[in-house]
């Protein structure tokens, strides 16, 4: 291992003096060394190749900051970590930029994803016993088929207040209808 590390330092020193073969060998060894490091941290082989290329370009740009007087690997890994985190940051920022708000999908989704055990008609009597506001909300949502957003604008409440009121009403109905 120590011989291997010496060879990195030696190759880099020769590369800085303009030895292109030593430089090519150094870059190949560097790529071999970093591939498993990146593969552990990235899911796809394409990403590993992309980041590896970024790192090699950075090593090339920054090679004058290595003078051969100190170990090569901490210098290399500092650059590798920097490029990896840069890549991940950009990747996730890009994902977030293209992510759509769940609220945009709400109206496209089916209103019920499971069969309900009751029709509105069968529980109308219980609904009418609820506080007036909760009863109106359930009537508008389940009898007339409005969404929470539409109910909110119809009765002048905000959408989350409508959802909270509906949730409370469901809890009351659940205890009454499913003892």
């Amino acid at each position: 291992m120590s011989e291997n590390l010496d060879s990195f330092t030696n190759l880099m020193q020769r590369a800085l003096n303009g030895d292109n073969r030593a430089y090519s060998e150094l870059l190949q060894k560097t790529a071999q060394l970093l591939r498993p490091y990146l593969a552990k941290r990235l899911l796809f082989a394409n990403d590993v190749d992309d980041v590896l290329q970024e790192i090699l370009l950075s090593v090339h740009k920054a090679r004058h900051t290595y003078d051969g007087g100190r170990p090569y690997l901490p210098w290399l890994y500092a650059i590798a970590r920097f490029r990896l985190s840069d890549y991940l940051r950009e990747h996730y920022a890009d994902d977030l930029k293209h992510a759509s708000d769940i609220a945009d999908w709400e109206n496209l989704l089916p209103e019920t994803v499971t069969e309900t055990a009751f029709s509105y008609e069968s529980i109308r009597a219980e609904v009418e016993k609820l506080p007036a506001k909760q009863a109106i909300i359930l009537q508008l949502m389940h009898e007339q088929g409005h969404t929470a957003k539409e109910v909110a604008s119809l009765i002048g409440m905000n959408e989350s207040a409508v959802k909270v009121a509906a949730h409370r009403a469901y809890k009351v109905l659940k205890t009454k209808l499913m003892p």
Binding site: A15, L16, N17, G18, N20, R21, Y23, S24, L27, Q28, A31, D49, L52, Q53, L56, L57, H60, R63, H64, T65, Y66, D67, G68
Partner: peptide, 24 residues
Amino acid sequence: MKNLDHLIAQLAQDNAPRAAASHP
């Protein structure tokens, strides 16, 4: 992989002698 080999060949070709930066 081919891209990587190509990049390494290109970087090695671009490698001109370069003075190391001075001590900090």
